[in-house]
Design a protein around this nucleic acid. Structure first.
Length: 779
DNA sequence: CAGTGAGCGAGCTTCCGCTTGACTT
């Protein structure tokens, strides 16, 4: 039995550290927090100075029991959790939950998992920093009070099951605000003028310095330029440098993996977790850009051996984020000589990105020479500018270029310019004036939302991905692609002394995998903003973080801070949930129908709906759901009235009535209690009985082909043809048909024994396949 | 999975941050 027990947070970390320490050490992990407030109830004794009612988390009872046993036997227990607010709290909870004598515990900290760092930590133990723990308790209790008092207000005043919190509600607000900016955006047109020139045999492009306001101005200029003479009047060479980006943090890794590899935030984290567990990279949840000395040396050696001394440049980076707690290193390869790794292609690609980014961060600047040539013309004062860029020394660009969120409108590709001298005349082959439109701010992607949250100091590396999935699960936002609309634009062209006009069309407003608010998200956001402005303020987290810091410095008692926050907050909660506050439904009156009945749209118990007529009127109002693609803020009176044209009755088929309507999954025909989706080309408002019968018959034919075998004696069991081949189903649970059996010839007895075997194996059954849970193959 | 939109009024829902686990006809 080892004399020493050292406890860290992550099992993978425990394995690594165990190798660094000798036989005298057993290294175990707590697997994160072990105690927390209870899930049910507020869990804070408000009357009793906000005393938290901690309990061992349900999924940690086993770990705690094991650690307790080991701690009892050990001579010394080393609490080696992270050196940040949460890590300090975990150490403190361990001390209490394991019931160890404080005298035989030591608190140790390190910022990197390297042998020298671990040994140095062991050599310099300290005690638990209670002030830091208190700052964590303040954070925890504040989040609980806000989340668990605000959410019930939403259940009463908006819709049951909703949630609100310090982080998620602001994340939703960002998306709602942005959506409104985009929809309110007024596109203003302007003209951009491009000249296509020749200098001797070489061709190049230059742009008019000034943008023109309208078509008249553009036409005037082009007419004036007929027969103009173009002369080079200035030429400047500007040397410039480019510096590599810092190594990855969680947030920057998520952004780059999204831009370069198209991964979602959670996908990136899943892959990174796997790379970390296999020992290929350092810890993936970090806000630090710091590299250990070991890493700096390793990267340098690799740059030297691959590219030579000219390319090596050791750099250290400082974090820009004020909220950073820097308990870990940046995300980097553990071994720089491994340029490639074994694994799935996703893993290889993400590793490659991490390797390149880290190596590039330790390489020389790129040296670039920019050339700017000014071309004047004889017809007016307006000048054309041509820019060229030549790389003198590629430096880190040999390995890595960071990509950019704003990739659109980068039409001025900068390249090599031909050699030109001042006073040289150049020839214009063509001058084009193209109509352009100003752009609204871009909608958020998952990754750009993370970037924004980090900049505001909201959320932590471990919560970015879960936060995004929470606000999706609550139905506040959706990630989707939307088709754009066509827009006409004008191009004027001056060629061979003639100006021609052309009208072209382009697609505008198309979005791919962007975040949009739902109607629920908008109503909840507006409600919270109206009543809880303080919490919805983008600076709320920053303010409370400042207070947590003063608690951590020992200058303030955590319960005082909470008390001061809670009193007015709770008062607002009471007032807002009382009967005096009206339910929030986001109701809009759209107008009146032909009979003068009121038409309105609002958020009902089951989602967005339109209402025709009033509830206190003689005849009851009619209701209809909004269909996919319709939104409460943008639906028109005409669109709303259209919704009441459904359901339509189409007549009978086999003595049963057919009706057509639109549901959650689009238009459908209903017949004899069954639903038949309308194909895209059919319009629910005009489709006729004949066509509906066709649709019903087609589906019935497909259903028939799906069935391989049924048994008269046991109608619950069916052998069916599915997406993944033949399978068996009983009482909505599915079973595999053994590969060596012919599904068409299985007997009922064989089926029953297969089902019995499968049930005995004890694996939990799923009623349906859940996508997104696929286990990576190859293991 | 394609209804419902209010009164009956049980019992439920919810936060953020630390960590990994699971398992598919």
């Amino acid at each position: 039995m080892a004399k020493n027990l050292l406890i860290v947070e992550s099992p993978a970390k425990a394995k690594t550290i165990e190798k660094y320490l000798g036989e005298d050490f057993t290294v175990k992990s707590s697997i994160g927090h072990i105690r927390d407030l209870p899930e049910k109830g507020i869990g804070v004794d408000i009357e009793n100075n906000f005393r938290p009612e901690y309990e061992i988390s349900a999924d940690k009872t086993k770990v705690v029991a094991e650690l307790k046993k080991l701690a009892k036997k050990a001579e010394t227990v080393w609490l080696a959790t992270d050196e940040d607010r949460e890590g300090e709290a975990i150490a403190w909870h361990l001390l209490q939950a394991l019931e160890i004598d404080e005298k035989k515990t030591r608190r140790v900290v390190y910022h990197e998992i390297t042998k020298p760092a671990i040994l140095a930590a062991i050599a310099h133990p300290r005690t638990i920093n209670k002030a830091l723990v208190d700052a964590q308790q303040a954070r925890r209790v504040l989040d609980r009070l806000v989340g668990y008092e605000l959410s019930p207000v939403l259940w009463r005043k908006v819709k049951t099951g909703l949630s609100a919190g310090r982080v998620q509600s602001v994340a939703v607000r960002l998306i709602v605000d942005r959506e409104r900016e985009v929809t309110a955006f007024a596109f203003s047109p302007y003209f951009r003028v491009l000249g296509y020139f020749s200098a001797g045999a070489a061709k190049f492009r230059a742009e008019l310095e000034k943008k023109l306001a309208d078509e008249t101005q553009a036409r005037d200029l082009l007419n004036k330029l007929k027969g103009a003479v173009y002369t080079v009047t200035n030429k400047e060479k500007k040397p410039s440098r480019r510096t590599p980006s810092a190594p990855f943090t969680t947030s920057t890794l998520q952004q780059e993996a999204s831009r370069k590899l198209g991964y979602s935030v959670s996908q990136t984290m899943r892959i990174a977790q796997s790379l970390y567990e296999k020992g290929y990279i350092t810890y993936m949840r970090t806000d630090s850009v710091n590299l250990s000395q070991l890493a700096l040396d390793g990267a340098k050696a690799e740059v030297l051996s691959l590219y030579g001394g000219k390319y090596a440049h050791t750099r250290t980076y400082k974090t820009k984020s004020a909220s950073a707690q820097e308990a870990h290193e940046a995300i980097r390869p553990t071994n720089f000589t491994a340029k490639e790794i074994e694994g799935e292609s996703n893993e290889k690609r993400l590793y490659d990105l991490i390797w390149k980014r880290t190596i590039a961060s330790q390489m020389a600047d790129a040296e670039i020479e920019k050339t700017v040539v000014t071309i004047s013309q004889s017809a007016s004062e307006e000048k054309f500018i041509a820019t060229g860029e030549v790389t003198i020394f590629d430096g880190f660009l040999k390995v890595y270029t960071e990509s950019d969120d704003e990739t659109e409108e980068n039409e001025t590709e900068e390249g090599h310019l031909p050699a030109m001298e001042i006073n040289q005349q150049v020839e214009a082959n063509e001058i084009k004036a193209m109509q352009k439109f100003t752009l609204p701010p871009p909608r958020y992607t998952e990754a750009s939302l993370v970037k924004k949250l980090e900049a505001l100091g909201i959320g932590r590396p471990s919560t970015y991905a879960p936060t995004i999935s929470t606000i999706q699960k609550r139905g506040y936002i959706v990630k989707e692609s939307r088709e754009g609309t066509e827009r006409k634009y004008t191009v004027l062209n001056l060629k061979n002394n003639e100006v021609s006009t052309e009208t072209k069309t382009e697609i505008t407003g198309a979005e791919k995998s962007k975040l949009f608010p739902t109607d629920t998200g908008i109503v909840v956001n507006d409600f919270l903003k109206e009543h809880f402005g303080e919490i919805m303020d983008f600076n709320f987290t920053a303010h409370v973080e400042e207070e947590f810091d003063t608690i951590a410095e020992g200058k303030r008692t955590w319960t005082d801070m909470i008390a001061k926050f809670y009193a007015p907050f709770h008062k607002t909660v009471e007032k807002t949930s009382s009967v005096e506050t009206k339910r929030a439904s986001g109701e809009r009156i759209l107008g009146k129908d032909a009979n003068g009945k009121k038409v309105s749209v609002r958020l009902g118990r089951f989602g967005p709906m339109v209402q025709l007529g009033e509830s206190d009127a003689e005849d009851k109002p009619r209701y209809a759901k909004l269909t996919a693609g319709q939104h409460m803020e943008t639906i028109t009176l005409e669109q709303a009235l259209d919704l009441f044209r459904l359901p339509r009755t189409l007549g009978n088929y086999e003595d049963k009535e057919m009706t057509v309507a639109t549901g959650r999954f689009g238009p459908y025909v209903k017949h004899d209690g069954k639903f038949y989706s309308l194909p895209k080309q059919d319009d629910p408002y005009t489709v006729q009985a004949e066509r509906a019968i066709e649709i019903i018959q087609e589906k019935q034919k497909r259903e028939k082909e799906k069935v391989i075998q049924v048994f008269n004696r046991e109608p619950e069991i069916q052998i069916l043809n599915g997406r993944y081949g033949p399978y068996m189903t009983m009482n909505k649970v599915n079973y595999k048909v053994p590969k060596d059996k012919d599904p068409a010839k299985l007997t009922l007895e064989e089926c029953l024994s297969i089902i019995e075997e499968a049930d005995k194996s004890g694996k939990p059954k799923r009623k349906a396949f859940r996508p997104g849970n696929k286990k990576p193959k190859g293991e």
